[in-house]
Design a protein around this nucleic acid. Sequence first.
DNA 1: GTGAAAGCGCTAACAC
DNA 2: GTGTTAGCGCTTTCAC
Lengths: 329, 329
Amino acid sequence: MARHAGVSPSTVSYVLSGKRSISEETRRRVRASIRELGYRPHAGARALASSRSNVLALMIPLRSGIAVPVVMQFAVSVVTAARRHDHDVLLLTQEEGEDGLRRVADSALVDALIVMDVQMRDPRLPLLRSLDRPSVLIGFPADAGDLTCIDLDFHAAGAVCVQHLAGLGHREIALIGSPPEVYARQTGYAQRVADGFAAAVGAHGLAGEVHPCEATADAARALVARLLAERPGLTGVLVHNEPVVGPVVRALRAAGRRVPEDVSVVALCPDEMAEHAEPPLTSVAIPAEEVGGRAVELLMSKLDGVPVPAATLLPPTLTRRASSAPAPS
Amino acid sequence: MARHAGVSPSTVSYVLSGKRSISEETRRRVRASIRELGYRPHAGARALASSRSNVLALMIPLRSGIAVPVVMQFAVSVVTAARRHDHDVLLLTQEEGEDGLRRVADSALVDALIVMDVQMRDPRLPLLRSLDRPSVLIGFPADAGDLTCIDLDFHAAGAVCVQHLAGLGHREIALIGSPPEVYARQTGYAQRVADGFAAAVGAHGLAGEVHPCEATADAARALVARLLAERPGLTGVLVHNEPVVGPVVRALRAAGRRVPEDVSVVALCPDEMAEHAEPPLTSVAIPAEEVGGRAVELLMSKLDGVPVPAATLLPPTLTRRASSAPAPS
DNA sequence: GTGAAAGCGCTAACAC
DNA sequence: GTGTTAGCGCTTTCAC
């Protein structure tokens, strides 16, 4: 390659990296040779010489109770953002656990790591602290210490939904939440929504409790039936459980409740899902695209030695659609 | 590392790779040092010296009309299988296209490639042929040439569903298929199901046509309404479109048709989905786990220089559940 | 603005 | 059964 362009290897390297100034003429010749020969620098050699692999690890959750399409959105947005920064993404499954993270980090296969589905007391936290590579958590554990975390502000999200319903005059509401195992695992976001919900319920003087719900239509139907029977005054529901959003609405209707005339429904889910529901749902978006993108940006800053805030909480945005209305009088 | 164990670097390498015999004593000492020092070979150095990165590329589809959870199942099974063979997986999105494949292959970032969502005339085919690295397609293009392909035998899958319905005495049936854009792109599997369906309909002397359907509940409802209006004798439906399986069943019921007493429904979808539907659906499984695993095995064989068959078609398995019954008389 | 050369940390061919 | 050594193909100091 270098000889084809009539320059030294280092010059080729510098043309590619732009780390020192090159004469217009030389740059042109090198570029021409690159195109002609279809030259690509060898990733391994590069990683060895520069101790940068330009690869990020992304560990995605697999466990029951997680919404697969949502996870996929995160993954895609991470890959897309990484490519913008000339990085690739290595896919790890949660199953690999701490060993997987250690393996790819210590072997210098990756420069940095992103982990999703963070639990309150996550066993990966001490490991991530001990690694000499930067990492970003999508989600907040109970005690992050100085680990970098980013996520939607789920506490505020839960609260803003309650506030919306309270503003519409609803007095008795309920949260249909994630599957029980998600709470049992102490997965941060589920807990935080419940907390934000409860806090706002208290602040607004409403009645309202949290009901975990399996991610099946049957479970949703059963729960709705129970709620309607036990809480005749119920007029507002917040659903934070993607797969049962549809079933909940249908169960309400099957029980003779109109949405939104009799019962208002607010969802905490990706916008696209809320838009395409029947009826379109008032919702707080889970901004997978933005979270994934920002996670990568944070990592890039850290790799460049630029300090970043330890916590990034994205404020929730509630979009009003057809599923919520003033409480019936 | 080598000095800590009191051996030469090559000995460490050989202990790790097992490529030559090592005395029990030496192996023990080396292993002990590895553990003590927490030593991990540098992935880049290894790739450079051995021209093997032990990384596979997986390009996943993103385009509209594809069922995200199904794609995710493939991805997870590929990662899991790859790890069994001591390989990692680099995630590429379809958006990266041919350039992305070329980039990771030519830079030696990956040893081999897996591409999903293959179209009949896929622009990536010539590229894959030109690369000097092995690849496997999950799906079949119109003309695979000597490219290695694996997938469920969708033609047979379509046919076996028709056969099942014919055996139950149904005479008028319909295929509710993938979204129109999937056919328009000439995506292999959609076309093949339709072909297998049509062939079997002919062979059994039935009446039946193919109806593409958008992946929304609204579209499903509208299509079911139209079918019931235009085809009063319709008693059997094959659904090959994951997101609308539920909506189709509900639309039939809403129209006063019992499932399976009045209309039998057969689905072509992952088993898990069919099991959890209401009612549980007679279905032909999309064996994501097996396809992903086999794709990796094929790649490993090719990397080892072992020849593999160009085409692997997994035979369909129909599982009878509660949604199909003899045709009403 | 450019080149020469010393590694980066392994693997594998070649010794013995 | 083990050690020696020559690369693998880059990046980056150092020199000019």
